[in-house]
Computed example of a mutant assay.
Amino acid sequence: MSYSILEDNELMDKVRLSDERAFDEIYRRYWRKLYALSLYHLRDSNAAEDIVQEIFVSLWASRERSEIKHLYTYLATATKYSIFHYFAQPARNTDSLEELHTLAADHSTADTRFLEEEIRREIDRLPEKCRLVFRYSREEGLANKIISEKLNISTKAVEKHMTRALRQLRVQFKHMLMSLLF
């Protein structure tokens, strides 16, 4: 039997029964697309490969309890959330939240609205000074010196509030994304 002629739902039925050939066909069918999606956003081929590998490992590991209706949509969404998780890691550049926002803009309107609402909610949960500094910096594009003058605080205090805001947002998004993935 040629697995290449099977529909995604037929392949998933076989994968649920631990059919490795069906899984190999899914991998062959979608690896390149998921890699391209990851590479586009990450601009790091090693990280992109790692994310795609993790998606397929997760698919295989959860195969018996998986009720996936639209395979490519599921895989692309899992990839997207893995990319968000990648940017949310504390070791990432402080511009990662902007990259998250850019990534959100590349996806469907429903996904974008959901992500924008979540970002907005998390920003609103920040302590007042952190929230003000974050909004002045990221939403209005003001320099730290101008923010410090506007809020009558030192530029070091602006940096401290910005660091705190970014750290808190990363932690919140990490928790949110992990709960969405699992």
Rank of each mutant, 00 (worst) to 15 (best):
A88D: 07
M176T: 03
I68S: 09
L151R: 02
E7G: 01
R121G: 04
E10A: 10
L103V: 07
S38P: 15
R63K: 15
A110P: 05
F87Y: 15
I147A: 11
T109M: 12
A76Q: 06
F173A: 04
T112H: 14
E54T: 10
E128V: 05
F134E: 10
L115W: 14
E116P: 03
E25M: 00
D44H: 11
Y3M: 08
E128P: 08
L169S: 04
L11S: 03
S45F: 07
F134Y: 15
V52Y: 07
L17I: 00
R32E: 08
Q172C: 09
E128L: 07
V52E: 09
D124S: 11
F87R: 10
A143D: 15
K150E: 12
Y35P: 14
N144G: 10
Y40P: 11
D95L: 09
E139T: 01
E7K: 14
R21N: 01
F173M: 15
F23G: 01
H161W: 12
I147N: 11
S108R: 10
Y35L: 14
L17W: 00
A143S: 14
S137W: 03
I147Q: 08
A143W: 05
A104D: 06
I55F: 01
L17Q: 05
A157G: 08
E10Q: 15
R170S: 13
L169V: 00
D44W: 06
H101I: 04
E25G: 00
Y81L: 15
I83K: 08
M1P: 13
R43H: 10
S154E: 09
Y86E: 10
F114W: 14
R120L: 11
V57F: 13
A61F: 05
K156M: 09
Y74M: 09
E140C: 08
